[in-house]
Design a binder for these strands. Structure first.
Lengths: 225, 225
DNA sequence: TCATAAGATGACTCACAAGTCACATTCCGA
DNA sequence: TCGGAATGTGACTTGTGAGTCATCTTATGA
């Protein structure tokens, strides 16, 4: 994991690092609660128990710089999750098993760190369609990093004759995207329990079953062959 | 289509309707350009060639009421698209053909009405994770309407032994969601042409090929059976 | 102990945009 | 032609929050 206090630093620097991280933790919570646009530096400052001005000593770019710092950590965690799910394996473990594993862990990750994930999803979609090329590029880059982490495993599976010879980048993209989709779907349908048509979707509420379903759909398709 | 001028109205009322629609068209453009949060009523008013105050004579709820009015029309159009793709058919046309058709048309729709779609995607994700239950419910309802439009066709396909007996609500959800996903993916990768790793994804840039790919993935899966 | 640097602070400024309302304009029926 | 109803308008009010900076506090080491 990228951050965590580095012991090769002077006490001064370590303390500064700690304070920076405390601010980011506060920002995480506030961004998740209010959404980026309605989050205020004042509230982040208050939650972090610093003055508003102090935040600017740590994040010159203000709110926006804090957002990207938070997003960096989420993407790092997601990347780690994907990489480790497919790591080393694929000799002993099939691609299918690895994917199933990744989905299960992604759901667990979401449950643990809902706050972070919510920021990611909301802001990613907002920025992807913004007209600020730098931001669009940021998300393309992060997205590509994650999709690319899947490629070696896919290539190997093709070589082993385990999966069809499809355009792998597109396949990788779809595998990832459906995890997002599943999580969003679960989040939306869970959020309000009492709502009307609830019987349905329940299949996807148990993490294990959700992972089964997604894996089956993507590996076997819905058609009877 | 829901709106369009109704001829059973007095001229007065028809004119009012026209003005209302002109305002909504202006709002569409501004929302798409700036995003809901950064769009200002002033700019919408200017574009619609009305005074700011006048908008409040037509939309008491101000900006937010305008947003939902715009979203209603997008969802109506999407719903029509889904319904008509699967309509009547499924005796002569297989589910697979219908779905392929829907994907192709969805891509075309996006190309024609990018503005509308962008608003939908950005705001849907933002609001789904807001803590305003009414808004969450709105999106659940609209989403459900679209997913439900697929169900009869799926049920019939199961009855005919064309597709596996999977939880149909979840299948319907996935079929729809992947169209969204494809469109977002195409949008993001198109947006910036010159970008670095572009060779890849190109398969999905031709609408026909993108529809082929998505249909093949979801119906046949990636595994070799 | 004190001088200096490093860090923290929140009242203030400034820009911006939502929503209001008193007044202007246009329409229409008598 | 006239008067009142309907409609339009944008200057103004009000609220908000980002970012600044003069000032205060604390740490350091000479």
């Amino acid at each position: 994991m990228a951050s965590d206090t580095d012991s090769s630093l002077s006490r001064r620097e370590r303390e500064r690092q700690m304070r920076r991280e405390a601010m980011l933790r506060a920002a995480e919570v506030v961004f998740a609660q209010k959404g980026y646009t309605h989050a205020t530096l004042g509230e982040i400052a208050e939650r972090a128990e610093f003055g508003k001005g102090t935040l600017y000593n740590y994040f010159e770019g203000g709110k926006e710089e804090m957002l990207f710092a938070v997003l960096d950590t989420v993407y790092d965690e997601v990347h780690d999750l994907v990489t480790s799910s497919f790591a080393g394996a694929c000799h002993e473990r099939s691609l299918r098993t690895c994917y199933h594993d990744m989905v299960t862990r992604a759901i667990a990750f979401y449950q643990e760190r809902e706050d972070l994930f919510v920021i990611l999803i909301k802001e990613a979609y907002r920025m992807c369609f913004s007209h600020d090329d730098e931001k669009v590029a940021y998300f393309q880059r992060q997205r590509a990093r994650i999709v690319d982490a899947l490629l070696p495993a896919l290539e190997q599976a093709v070589a082993q004759g385990a999966i069809r010879d499809l355009p792998l980048h597109s396949v990788a993209h779809m595998l990832i995207e459906n995890v997002d989709g599943l999580i969003v779907h679960r989040a939306v349908t869970t959020h309000q329990e009492s709502s009307s048509a609830c019987e349905h979707g329940t299949i996807l509420q148990e993490p294990e079953q959700a992972a089964d379903f997604l894996t089956a759909m993507l590996f076997d398709g819905i058609a009877i062959s």
